[in-house]
Nucleic acid binder design. Structure first.
Lengths: 334, 334
DNA sequence: TCACCGGTTGACATCGATGTCAGCCGCGGC
DNA sequence: GCCGCGGCTGACATCGATGTCAACCGGTGA
């Protein structure tokens, strides 16, 4: 900074004023200082800035998953990519951490906040009984819950209409004539799993479909295949299965193929997540398409709003759209 | 820190001495200070530490990929997970950034370094003509090239034996009786793509196989399928195809299925990357299994060595192992 | 002639740690 | 009785920015 001041022929104070857009310098000086800083490749030290109360210019994101179940879904990296499109404009960095479980995630927040490493965090995979919002609230650490429903305790939320999406899937399958529908869900403790299950139950009631149910899994291809095999061995197997993500759905297709059960002639399949995976299996999967990039962008925008001192609120992203491909049809004899 | 000093009944200097393992305090005081700090949940502000010459306690990782081709492979998140297992021990954070291209990646390094945001970086996807090592060297920013071959310009490397792995695949297919082998490779500018292609060429010469070649793609399922279709339409199609990653291989299987070409009876398929994808397609894919977690761990260890002042060097990870499943067999009539 | 103005300076405090250094206290040995 | 030493204190500088404040300079209007 001293160098910049010297080269521009002004004082250090003037440099600070000029570069932070504060009054006290003329437009011409401001411009000169700016160009000198540019030329010298000078950037303020984040450490020094953070120390003088500007915050760490960093937001945190923790992913709590055991390493082995990590990363088949394109979803996550796309989300991060969207987040960064927004953060980049503000010169905010993203501190990223993979941990084993939620307890470690909470510890991470405490450490980050105690060390002043982050100004705020994005919380993903909200759960039904979730200790994390309480932790953030008690710390006073600003946060946005990605996929949360309401904004409480000073946390913002980005709301995803799982219930509406599930209703649209149920209606679509019902319209095709399906009566026996099974929902192969993900982890039961995740909030969106419970929302989807509840929505399906109420839709089944509304449409008068008694043979509708949800089964939970750990999202792994292994459980997806195992559950599907069990379903197909039943005396009255379902005619349509809705899988909670692309991996489960692809595993389901593979299981059906093992049994030489034609999809969609004998079994319709819907994937709750559209990705290349859905176009890599045969037949191509009918899927709920959402836009993880947009979700990431909205989440990051909400977080920057919070950091700017705005009150917590709930933002929404568009309802997932059902993309009909080859894996759904009328039920046999329907 | 003041609070800790007060609660422990000692001076601030004593606290600093105690917690940084420096002489000047008795073991009993050291222990008392430690426990008070623990109790108060005190952690040193990284900003203040960084400012007084300790470094940012953060390493950087930039992923240069257009958002749409992002994240089908489990590889990347597993790598990150391995990296963090090592970084966590040292209380080092990971600053993660997704950018569009290598130019943006270089700019990122310059910014990070100018802002003192990172102490070192992990460089992934090394290229044949790669500007990035030069940038790091000119900045003096410590770095580890993940998948690099030699350590030059003060950068360490983690070496992956692509050539050896490719040779083992070629030998395996040759032993099965295959003569016409095609390698559907990834991006031509990546260093490992070139290494694999070169290795295949020399193996083909050694084994006297004239009908062997490599074709490059962008790693997308679309190109994987398109290339495979083109291959199968040739008058003398290959009897074995080696795909440079799991996505390409799965797309290849799908393309073969479209043509009703039985795998492996008429076409053998090998995937260069083992993942759940390889067990989600039918038939299950023979694949080269490497261990991204271990790769991440070794890379992070090399980086911490560099940060500790050790000279740059090249470390190695085990050669990928060929896991034989259902997608490879003798060629028709072989 | 003087007060006022915007633009600018230079000196100083602040953030929270590390590093250094003189000096203090009490205990043991010569 | 004095020296030396381990253990500890307290004051100060340092890192690189931000924030504040009194003062100064040249030009304008009253």
């Amino acid at each position: 900074m001293k160098d910049v001041a010297e080269r521009a022929g002004v004082s250090e104070s003037a440099v600070s004023f000029a570069l932070n857009g504060r009054p006290g310098v003329s437009e011409s000086t401001r411009e000169r200082v700016r160009s000198v800083a540019e030329e010298l490749g000078w950037r303020p030290s984040t450490a020094a800035r953070a120390l003088s109360g500007e915050g760490a210019a960093t937001v945190g994101l923790v992913l709590a998953r055991p390493a082995r179940t990590l990363g088949v879904e394109p979803f996550f990296l796309q989300l991060v990519s969207g987040v960064q499109q927004v953060l980049a404009e503000r010169r905010l960095g993203l501190l990223f951490q993979v941990v084993e479980d939620v307890a470690a995630e909470c510890a991470m927040y405490e450490h980050w906040w105690a060390e002043h490493r982050v100004d705020g965090v994005l919380l993903v995979d909200p759960r039904a009984e979730d200790p994390r919002p309480d932790v953030l609230a008690s710390l006073g650490l600003p946060g946005v819950v990605v996929g949360g429903t309401e904004s409480r305790q000073g946390l913002s939320s980005v709301w995803i209409d799982d219930a509406g999406a599930m209703a649209s899937v149920a209606e679509y399958l019902h319209a095709l004539g399906h009566q026996r529908i099974t929902h192969v869900a993900g982890l039961p403790e995740l909030a969106h799993t419970q929302r989807r299950m509840a929505s399906l139950r109420s839709e089944a009631e509304r449409l008068d479909l008694p043979h509708v149910r949800s089964l939970t899994t750990d999202y792994s291809d292994a459980e997806g295949a195992a559950v599907t095999r069990r379903l197909l061995d039943e005396p009255d197997p379902p005619t349509a299965v809705v899988y909670d993500n692309d991996v489960l759905a692809a595993a389901g297709v593979a299981a059906a193929a093992e049994r030489r059960l034609p999809v969609p002639a004998r079994l319709s399949i819907v994937s709750w997540e559209d990705s290349v995976l859905c176009r890599m299996v045969h037949p191509w999967l009918t899927a709920l398409a959402r836009d993880p990039l947009a979700l990431g962008r909205v989440a990051a925008e909400e977080l920057t709003r919070l950091l700017d001192g705005a009150p917590a609120r709930t933002a929404g992203v568009p309802v997932p759209r059902l993309v009909v491909r080859e894996s759904t049809a009328h039920p046999p004899g329907g």
